[in-house]
Nucleic acid binder design. Sequence first.
DNA 1: ATGTTC
Length: 477
Amino acid sequence: MSLELKMINENLWQLPQVGEMRVPARVYAKSNLIDLVKHDKSLQQLKNVATLPGIQNFALAMPDIHQGYGFPIGGVAAMDVNEGVISPGGVGYDINCGVRFIKTNLSRQDVEKNLDDLLTALYQTIPTGIGSQNAIGKLSETELKKVLVNGAEWAINKGFGKERDLAVIEENGRMNSAKVDKISSRALQRGASQLGTLGSGNHFVEIGFVDEIFSADISQKLNLKKDQLIIIIHTGSRGFGHQVCDDHLRKMLVQKIDFPLPDKQLIAVKIQSKSGEDYFAAMSSAANFAWANRQVIMSLVEQTFQKSLRISSEKLGFRLIYDVSHNIAKFEDHLIDGKRKELCVHRKGATRAFSAENFSGGTFHEIGQPVIIPGDMGTESYLCVGTKKAMSETFGSTCHGAGRMMSRRKALKSTDFDSVMNELRKKNIKVMAARKKTLIEEMSRAYKNVRDVVDTMHKSGISKKVVRTKPLAVLKG
DNA sequence: ATGTTC
């Protein structure tokens, strides 16, 4: 199958439209990354996506592409709202998994001696690991439903963060399309105790610093300086979103569909059908849960910093730069053959990267939408901005992270806990995790080189590098 | 990713 990949340019490859494919497929990848795509089923999955009704232009893959449930992770697909379908596999089990980037007024030198205490305090404050619960007590069903409708705003009304945060969250931290009557009682049960919890896998809270500045102009507009202390939070909708995905996948799987489906995991239904509308309403509720979750966690991290460092909120200067979703489907207008068209854009392990023109005022109207691309726990992360080219080539989308290249199982077999810890210690990175197993699974070697991934999108002109950060201390699930 | 096979 790899022979079918034709080079468009040194960062872009194309799979021709064959068989049931309705459009060709495209993969963004530097030459040293394209080989990694051929090791798993991700290219076949991308071809399968190209067969879905209503798909526009191309089935797209970002350089962090790897095998996922039905859809590849790192995939983007935009469907026509009238003829097209919506697929839970195109969103992922962790609905609105995403990242937020926070700046502080401190420099890395200010906390050098406090890092152990800070990390321990974070570990004690934020429930981590699979099954983690009760950061802020169990919510009543009535209260949880308010979370599902109001998203990040719910958290702010409860005192977690500030009103101004909403302006720097994708969708302002709330999708109006949420409907709580599309949520099962089991999902409600799971969600009630999980708000403000980190979860497991690649989720984390990272204390880091600005290591290199690529755009002096944009970093200045975002008030980011070299050596400045920053926080990155990566988590999603926890067991709640997982249950929502599971519930709606099951319902769709027993339905009759009128198009060829190459893989059951890719199950999709018409956007304009009852089950399509129900899924979107439930997905939106889970997205709102995830935004509330990141909002609560950010506030808990801020409180922990104040207490542990014994400094005022003013001196700490905690300020949300941006919050992005990288597992979501959204209705957006894009130009297709020069005509404005409403599409359902699936981004699974892909980040929205809108250009400056999409914002009517403020900083983002000058610089474009901030994009946060975390690497693995032992390397580095990037803050980028979206571009015009993203709007015309990728439905305003870019990559979301380094991308796995080794399965969790293989990672566990290949090394042990002490070796992983030693490597991190050599790099002077402090880590605390709920379980040793997760830390082994998350080792650097299990991931692609995030620098190559980000450079692919930068050189393609899709998302532009602003700053690189490096980790000092990481809380893992 | 996930009360990791309701």
